[in-house]
Each structure stands twice: as C-alpha cells, then as structure tokens.
Design a protein around this nucleic acid. Structure first.
Lengths: 162, 162
DNA sequence: AGGCATTGATTGAGTTCTCAATTATCCACT
DNA sequence: AGTGGATAATTGAGAACTCAATCAATGCCT
C-alpha cells in the first residue's frame, strides 16, 4: 500500500525541469547534426576536442576523461573514426603503452562542415530562448554542479576496500 | 587556414557549463542506479511513468512522447521489461492498433527498490549543491527551454515534400 | 636485477538505441 | 461498400555503448 519513496513536490519540479529540458535539447541536437550533416553528436565532440588540442592530438585517456566516458568507448569510437579516415593513431614515444589520436585533414573538413550547424542548433534551442540573466544563471549553475561532482570523487571504478 | 565557424567565447562558456554538468550528472545517475540496484536509468523512467499514470498503464505512443524517444525504442524496451516480468501488454479495446503497457506488481517492486537510490543521487549531486535561488533559476530555465522547443515544432519525422 | 601492483589501452560479448521498412487498423471521402 | 492516406506499433539490421577480461609497458620496492 505504501507509496514509492521519491522526491517531494518541490524537488520534483526542479528535477523535471532539468531532465525534460536536457533530454529535449539532446534529442534536437542529435537530430540536427545527424540529419543535416550526417554526424553523430558524440563523434562531433571527439573531433572538436582534438581540433582544440595542441597538435590536434590527444591521448586516449585524455579523450576518455574529457568526454566522461570509459576508455573502452573511446577505443571503439576512435576505431570507427579511424576507419572513416577522420583520425589516425600515433604511438606515444615517452610511454609505449600510450597512443595519441590525431585529427586528420579529412577529419578537420568534417568538423568544419558540421560545426556551423551545431552552433546554430545550440543558439536556436538553448541560447536564444534565455534572457541574459538566465544565461548567466545557467553558467553559474552548471559550473557549481561540476565543481561539486569533482569534489565528490570519481564514480567510475570504485573498488570495495579489500 | 580559416578557423571553424562555431560559438563565440561567451556562448561557449554557457554551453560548456550546460553540456559538462548534464553529462556528468547523467554519468553519475547511471552509475548509481546500475551499480546499486542494477537498473538502467532509462528503464527506471519508463517504470516511473507507468506508476504515475492512471491504472498504472500507458499507450506505447504516450511512453514514446513522454520519454522523447521513437516508438521503436519503446517497443524494444517494453519487450525487454515484459520478458523481465515488470510490465505486460494489453490490447486497447477502442483502437485495436493500440497497446497499453501495464506495470505489474513485480515491476512496482523493482521501482520501489530503485526509487530511493535514484532520489538520493539526485539530491546529492544536483539539488544539494545549489542554493534556493539557483534551484529556482534552474526550474525557470528548464521550463523556458522546453516551452520554446514545444513551440518550434516536433523534430522527429520531417518528411521531405515529395 | 626480479617481482609485482598499477596504468594505458584494446577486445569481444552482450545491451540498448536508431533507422528504415512493414503490418494492421482506423478514418475520411466518394 | 471501397479506396487511399494516415496512424499505432512492431521488426530486423546495424550502430553505439557498457562491462569484464586481457595484454603490454611502466614504476616501485627490496
């Protein structure tokens, strides 16, 4: 008979606003990128990170860290991007376990083609509807949340004390 | 030589705050739910919607709408939940193309087991770090964004004029 | 130098999601 | 009544992601 232990009404309204808006935004971003330039958003993010990095290259572990995903996902994704000719792997000289992913010219071209569409989508669906005050508040909120998550220590791989 | 057409510095800071915080939050929610109660977050959402609905049942299309996903995803997910005994399908009497998904007692039990963990995670990582003013602002921002997206018409299935 | 836990990355299996095509029913119109 | 277009949902194939196990190189420690 007793009900589900869950958020109270006030908490729920906040969470719902967050959950619904972020889901809707990602659906829209995915759609715009996939349909208009044929690139999955998650791959765009990898290419963008590479473009932004010195030498257009990053270690696998840096990509994993920056995208908040597991190394395994990066391996698979880079493998696919490599087959598409958009990145290549380069062995790391100083640590021979490590690999760099390097953005190729072809990858750069794909990124250049996709970026304006993504930017337009972000402006149209996220930035434009918000007032300057709301935009400032969103920045503040996002940065606060990230700071807190950094503080509360990495979730991945939390070994039980043996 | 020319650079990628993208967001300017101010826009980028806002978008980054949004993107990084939402990604980190979802990684954390996924981790907490999957590791502590063994349920994927996306399935929790389906069970929750059913629990909240009259008769603990919803049409496939309502689930698709509410989760912002394509009908196909719902079919697959409901199929899996059905095999797990957590929901069952019921033919719709008034429209024989349609099906209801109904939450079973077993599904209710799974939901009851998972909800407190999810609620704790939401409180800990999203709500607690924010001041009352920030929480109010987040609600306002989220609702604004959703309103705008509703206004700009559905992205899914935009058939090219034949 | 030798042993050993740690780190960086990959692999393969299994799961979830997407996309396009398909089936079945309903509705509107003549 | 019968046709045609829309709607509800499913299916299967392929893409992307997760998880656990694995491999190789590194650094520490005595």
């Amino acid at each position: 008979m007793s009900d589900v232990v869950w958020l109270d009404e006030d908490e729920l309204r906040i969470f719902r606003a967050f959950a619904r808006s972020s889901r809707r935004l990602y659906v829209q971003f995915d759609y715009d990128l996939q349909h208009d330039v044929g690139m999955p958003r998650t791959y765009f993010e990898i290419l963008w990170l590479l473009h932004d990095a010195p030498g257009r290259s990053l270690r696998m572990s840096e990509l994993a860290q920056a995208t908040g995903s597991q190394p395994s996902r990066i391996s698979h994704a880079v493998g696919r991007l490599e087959r598409a000719g958009q990145v290549r792997r380069e062995l790391c000289a100083s640590d021979r376990r490590g690999w760099f992913t390097v953005l190729t010219d072809e990858g750069m071209a794909a990124l250049t083609a996709a970026a304006p569409r993504y930017a337009r989508s972000i402006r149209e669906h996220l930035l434009a509807p918000l007032s300057p005050a709301q935009r400032a508040a969103l920045t503040d909120i996002g940065e606060t949340v990230v700071r807190q998550l950094d503080r509360s220590e990495t979730p991945t791989r939390a070994p039980v004390p043996s």
